[in-house]
Design a protein around this nucleic acid. Sequence first.
DNA 1: ACCGTTGTAACTATTATAGTTACTACTCGG
DNA 2: CCGAGTAGTAACTATAATAGTTACAACGGT
Lengths: 139, 139
Amino acid sequence: MKQISSRFSIAVHTLCLIAVSSSEDCTGDYIAESVNTNPVVIRRIMGLLKKAGLVEVRPGVGGASLLKTPEDITLLDIYRAVHVIEDNQLFRFHEDPNEGCPVGRNIESVLQSELSEAQSAMEHRLAQTTLSQLTVKFK
Amino acid sequence: MKQISSRFSIAVHTLCLIAVSSSEDCTGDYIAESVNTNPVVIRRIMGLLKKAGLVEVRPGVGGASLLKTPEDITLLDIYRAVHVIEDNQLFRFHEDPNEGCPVGRNIESVLQSELSEAQSAMEHRLAQTTLSQLTVKFK
DNA sequence: ACCGTTGTAACTATTATAGTTACTACTCGG
DNA sequence: CCGAGTAGTAACTATAATAGTTACAACGGT
């Protein structure tokens, strides 16, 4: 069973940690210890979060901080930042169905629109939750 | 990017074909030709659809037919039948976060409930669409 | 009894992921 | 100005699931 990569849950964990810690504490090694993985895994994910404009990292000396308030970061923002699934690509489609068959010819367009509705429903739900809603539960 | 297996889209294609064709025509080879894949792939998926009580297959002579009307088969039924994602398992979670850290200790329970809401939202949308809504579009 | 079919097992190639090692470049404090 | 600690990144490995393939046994009707 193929699941959505744990990059996403690690990214959420990472951002929660940055939100509740002082900036200078938040080195890759510190985060890696809380997540319980290799620091390089964290640095890679931090690179994606930086590209998405969610965090900034102090090169050389280390430490990270948020570029938006936790109220303004949703799970959907994080999900998109780590490229875990692209637009309309949650469901893999079998390739080149037979054009000579009425079903084969039409299945893709007919089914894809339903699948993309389903994907949207999930993403819409992710957009309802902000980082701040999570961090209050660690107090 | 990990996507949900094309077993699902192939299963939907297969059931559409069974719904619009006469039972005796629906051999594995015939379906495989429409889907454009190897017959064994179809037989494996048919095995799952049988286990789920959606179709019956005539052994020896070949051919398949639905055990429910197309109005009573939803995309969610098919999605569950092909075991493409289990309950609450759409999102992979990183393992063994550090219990010594307030974030590490709580992240799983806090985040999992949001993620399972998101997964439910998607599945709820899949349950809205029936096989008959698809097949009318092939007429 | 034969032919076409289903049901499976076994193997391969492909793909994405997660973790690891190693190295470079950067910043600051001494 | 140098060294300690950190970030950034490339390269490699192990793992896992998938999709396709070959092969073969079992079945059923003509």
